[in-house]
Nucleic acid binder design. Sequence first.
DNA 1: ATGAATCAAGACTCGTCAGTCCAGAAATGG
DNA 2: CCATTTCTGGACTGACGAGTCTTGATTCAT
Lengths: 216, 216
Amino acid sequence: MRPSSLQKREAALRAAERQFLATGYESVTMDSIAAECGIAKQTLYSHFGSKRALFLELVTAETVGTRRTVLSPAPRIDPHDEPRAALRELLVGQLEAVLTPNIVGLRRLVIGELPRSPELAAALYEHGPKRAIANLAGIVAELQSAGVLRAADPERAAAQLNWMVMGEPLNRAMMLGDAALPDRAEIEAQVDLALELFFEGLAPHPADESAGALPA
Amino acid sequence: MRPSSLQKREAALRAAERQFLATGYESVTMDSIAAECGIAKQTLYSHFGSKRALFLELVTAETVGTRRTVLSPAPRIDPHDEPRAALRELLVGQLEAVLTPNIVGLRRLVIGELPRSPELAAALYEHGPKRAIANLAGIVAELQSAGVLRAADPERAAAQLNWMVMGEPLNRAMMLGDAALPDRAEIEAQVDLALELFFEGLAPHPADESAGALPA
DNA sequence: ATGAATCAAGACTCGTCAGTCCAGAAATGG
DNA sequence: CCATTTCTGGACTGACGAGTCTTGATTCAT
């Protein structure tokens, strides 16, 4: 193996990633990938074997790569020391990792390919939402046993919190394109309001029949 | 126009719908559509002009058709008479309309075609989630001014409730296929828990330091 | 009944794209 | 410097699918 071989391979993967995420599987041609990264089509085939194989390698790499990003901030939380602030930080990090052109593009791509490659979507589900929610569920369970939360079903409560906070922006990004992705400030506002609702609900406080703003 | 023409047209639309929803735009051929509904390809072209046009007509019809289904149960709510029961009924109806093989298939299809037809996805967003949330927001605002809720931003609260209740099942359906669609009982459980959280939150009640199960 | 329109069946064109082949250039290793 | 391996550019094949065309059958209105 020549040393330049690796660089070509990486360049090919980058070009393929860009094109697949931008326009979907079918509309990308091996010729266009080869052209973009300045590599002969033959080399593409000697590295990856087929268009499908290149696609699969790319998507699975991207899929497991994300998991590291999302979970890298170790989710250790001390229930007695500002549980809400810790949850907030975790959720903001989560949203910033997911609401990214790469990730939402990957979601679109995999969803569109579901009829052809259901195992890809299943893998993305396992490494993405499922893991994130399981992660959250652990924390919810901890807060529950510390008496900070009353969640009969931590798994479900975690899912509710997760989608309460990222359902709207993710859905918008999926259907309106990357231009609809929220910026940092919007993400923080989204998380703050969701946590408020998650802990306190929206029913009027029994002892507080007046206007709604309550001290942080 | 011959009278049998209309029947053929309908049959063609049904066959096309089935195939597009099942396997996506690219993998469906005009020949396969013609074969499924027993019609000559020529007739297909005389009716719809092109594959793309057939696809667009189909998807837009499906898109605006759903809106009628979802909004047909008139969302009139009396805030003084069991607001939670009314909300529950509305949300259950919403979920049952959306968590359907046709609708989630349509979502997958449109998301996969986003690079080619962003206006389709935008239309589906307008007629689907956006309308449903605006609908909910109206009710939330009503409950808010009736003193049953304290929601500073009814639009956002409605979005939170909406995704809290349908984020998880919709996401699962999108990535795990129609087999992951919830049945009626699961939908009702989902709605009940979400409403509980929406009104009461999960923080322990100040006056209730004991175990968590509270009377319905 | 008869003429005009519509439809069926399938052959046909044309473009596209995955994948292969080949002849030569360039890098590598000894 | 030479033999070997890898890369390149491009030509080539084979399949497939959108859209057209032809020919003959069927339906309808009068």
